[in-house]
Nucleic acid binder design. Structure first.
Lengths: 213, 213
DNA sequence: ACCACACTAGACTGATTAGTCGGTTAGTCG
DNA sequence: CGACTAACCGACTAATCAGTCTAGTGTGGT
């Protein structure tokens, strides 16, 4: 592994344990087993190191989610139907949680520092483009009536945050993920917050399926 | 207003704008219009200032939510029925959002720093007791079958995060809150993610799989 | 008038830390 | 080989910042 990656890895671990402030660059280089000079050879400033780490992680995740969306799109060319949207959404959901469970440190980093003032706007913007595909998916779903008519960016936030919450919980309780019925319940929870407020799912007595359109 | 409060207010504003690290105590005292000595007279260390600010804000919010729960409890002595749970939940939800809209800075502070390593465990624990009432409410709802049977602490996390997400969105789009139908849709969204997975609103993806466990 | 005390002030200091610099090593290519 | 370059090293420095110290100030009690 390159020294650059070793430094990033050491930084990630220290940052989520102590935060940016309480992690001097000296501690990072020491943990990575390199000299201060090496660290500053690869990253001009501490801020650049933080940005690089953020980008590394965020791009890694975004690529995964984009892949999930595109795979589904390719598998289903006439992609404006209900079934397609539902499948894609489920696939993204699954990718997200699997990634978090496989990369708990990276996930924690995002949770802890996505809102942080240390990540500057420019860095953040270099990565947000991926959300457009995600937003498009919701807007398609809205025109088909399977999602609530609230603003689509709100739907995106709600869905994303539900996933984040789920991931956080699963990292602390990984055994739950083995249960098929739990997975279903969790996905149902995520999905149902996006569905419109129809009489149907407000009143459990009715047995009619909703066949909108 | 006491100098102590002036300092806390200035600190709050600077912290959410720049983060803890980039806000030296000198900047805080300057913004508050007091001398360094005064700041350190009221707070022994910078850390203590941060903790005090966190506690101030968090206790303020917790008290509000507890009040919302208790008011409802007093108004409805035989409190084990479905209607009561629903009303209480709605009241808490409303209190939370109203508070965030009325105190956007405090709200942002919580969002940004609740997970931060700067808030030590001890400080955090001094405040978490309030969640027990909240958890109890969900457990009652579960025994009545109106909430999903997922772990109750997961339900609490999911509900809380939904509210936080909603608040964040509303702070940036306050005009939406004026619409009665939007409020209803948003509340429906928050509530429905907690409801059990009945055949009625079950998602089609899981229907072809074995449900028994 | 006088004291006691909580509060205020801001220059100062010791410690820490981001980042530099001059020099060494390791790899590459003609 | 020899010349060039990128990666690496760690002692050093300039700057910053948390927290101290000493010296007031205003107020209320006696």
């Amino acid at each position: 592994m390159s020294k650059r990656d070793t430094i990033l890895e050491a930084a990630l671990e220290l940052f989520i344990k102590q935060g940016f402030e309480k992690t001097p660059t000296s501690a990072i280089s020491k943990a990575a087993g390199v000299a201060t000079g090496t660290l500053f050879h690869h990253f001009k400033t501490k801020e650049e190191l933080i940005s690089a780490l953020y980008l590394d992680i965020k791009l890694n995740l975004q690529e995964l989610l984009i892949t999930a969306i595109n795979d589904e799109t390719l598998a289903n060319p006439q992609n404006m139907n209900k079934r397609f949207i539902e499948n894609t959404f489920h696939k993204v959901w699954l990718s997200m949680i699997s990634w978090a469970l496989a990369n708990p440190c990276k996930f924690k980093f995002l949770i802890q520092f996505s809102d942080s003032a240390h990540i500057n706007t420019e860095t953040r913007e270099r990565v947000e483009y991926a959300f457009s595909e995600w937003t498009t998916l919701f807007e398609k779903g809205q025109t088909l009536g399977i999602y609530s008519s609230m603003p689509s960016d709100l739907l995106v936030s709600i869905a994303t945050n539900h996933m984040f919450t789920s991931c956080e919980y699963l990292i602390n309780n990984p055994q739950l993920w083995k249960s098929e019925s739990f997975q279903q319940a969790l996905f149902h929870s995520c999905l149902s917050q996006l569905t419109p407020n129809t009489p149907n799912n407000q009143n459990p007595i009715s047995t009619n399926k909703q066949e909108a359109k």
